[in-house]
Design a protein around this nucleic acid. Structure first.
Ligand SMILES: [Mn+2]
Ligand SMILES: [Mn+2]
Ligand SMILES: [Zn+2]
Ligand SMILES: [Zn+2]
Lengths: 141, 141
DNA sequence: AAATTATTGCGACAGATTTGCAAATATAAT
DNA sequence: ATTATATTTGCAAATCTGTCGCAATAATTT
C-alpha cells in the first residue's frame, strides 16, 4: 500500500521500482519478519535466489528494510519508514515475535543515556526475550 | 582472570575446564565482541574449527557467552556474569563497539513496558547506532 | 593400571550467500 | 518508434559457514 514511498526512495537513489522489487516488497508488507528461506520459497518460480539476496541488500542499503537477528539466523522486516518505530518481544517458548510500539519516554531515555556517554545516537534496536501472554498462561497452570 | 567462575559453571554442568576451553575463554576475555572467523583465525594451528563452534555452543548453553547482532552477522562476547549487564554503542563510521553500562531506570522502564503488554520479560538486548565521540568530533570540524 | 566417559581433530557434507557473465528489461537518445 | 546505453535478472559455479560421524586423545573413575 506504500508503493509510492517505495518508488520515491528508489528513484532518489537512481533505481527504479521493477516488478521484482514490488513483489519482494509485497512479500514483506504487513507480515511478521521473514527469513530468507521463506522469502525464497514464497517467490519460487517467479524469482531467483540471487535476485532476492541482491534486492534485500539493496533495500537494506536504502533503508527500506532491516535485518533482525533471531538466535543464529536473521529475518527481514520493513523499516520504520513503513512500519513506524517499534521494538520486539520474542517468546522463548513458542518463537512468536510480537511488536511493542515505541514509547516516547523510553526513546528519550535511550537517547539521553547515549548522549551522556558522548555518543551521537541515530537509531537503536531493542529486542526483549521472555514469554508471550499465551505461553505465560500455559506455564503458570 | 575469572577462571574459577568459569570452572564452577562448567563443573556444575558436568563438564570440565580443559586447555581448549580456557584458551577460547581467554580469547574473549577483555576483548570487544568477536566474530567466529576471528576466533577461528586467532586459534589457528591450536584448535579445530569444529571444536570452536562446539565450544561456543556449549558456552552459550551454559550462559558463559552470548551472541550479538551486528548487521547480518553475529559476534560473541562474555555474558553478563563476567562483564556485568550492559548495552552497546556502535559507531557507524569507524565500526568501534563501545560498552554502555546499564542504568537502573532504563532497565525498569523496559521491564515495565514489556509487562504492560502482558509479556513476561527475562532479558533483552539494546544496541544503539550512531557516531562515537572521536568520529563525532571529526565530523563537526 | 584398566575401564569408562568426555573431548577434540579430521574429513566429508549440507545449506546459505556470493559472484561472473550472458540474456532480458528498462531508460535515454536519436 | 528505433537504436543505443545502462540497469536488472537468471543461471551455474564458486565460496563460506556451520554441522556431523567417527576414530584418536585426554580426562575421570574404578
Ligand atoms: Mn516488527
Ligand atoms: Mn560489551
Ligand atoms: Zn509464546
Ligand atoms: Zn567511530
Amino acid at each position: 500500500m506504500q508503493h509510492s514511498t517505495l518508488k520515491a526512495i528508489l528513484k532518489k537513489n537512481g533505481s527504479s521500482l521493477t516488478r521484482t522489487r514490488r513483489l519482494i516488497f509485497d512479500l514483506l508488507d504487513g507480515q511478521d519478519p521473514q527469513s530468507m528461506q521463506v522469502l525464497i520459497s514464497r517467490a519460487a518460480g517467479q524469482l531467483d535466489r540471487a535476485t532476492i539476496y541482491r534486492t534485500i541488500e539493496l533495500f537494506e542499503r536504502l533503508g527500506i528494510v532491516h535485518r533482525l537477528n533471531i538466535g543464529w539466523k536473521y529475518k527481514i522486516e520493513l523499516s520504520d519508514v513503513f512500519t513506524g518505530h517499534h521494538h520486539h518481544l520474542h517468546c522463548s517458548k513458542c518463537g512468536k515475535i510480537l511488536d511493542l510500539p515505541s514509547n516516547p519516554m523510553l526513546e528519550t531515555m535511550i537517547d539521553t543515556l547515549a548522549t551522556k556517554a558522548e555518543f551521537a545516537p541515530r537509531n537503536h534496536i531493542l529486542e526483549i526475550y521472555g514469554l508471550c501472554p499465551a505461553c505465560k498462561q500455559a506455564g503458570s497452570k
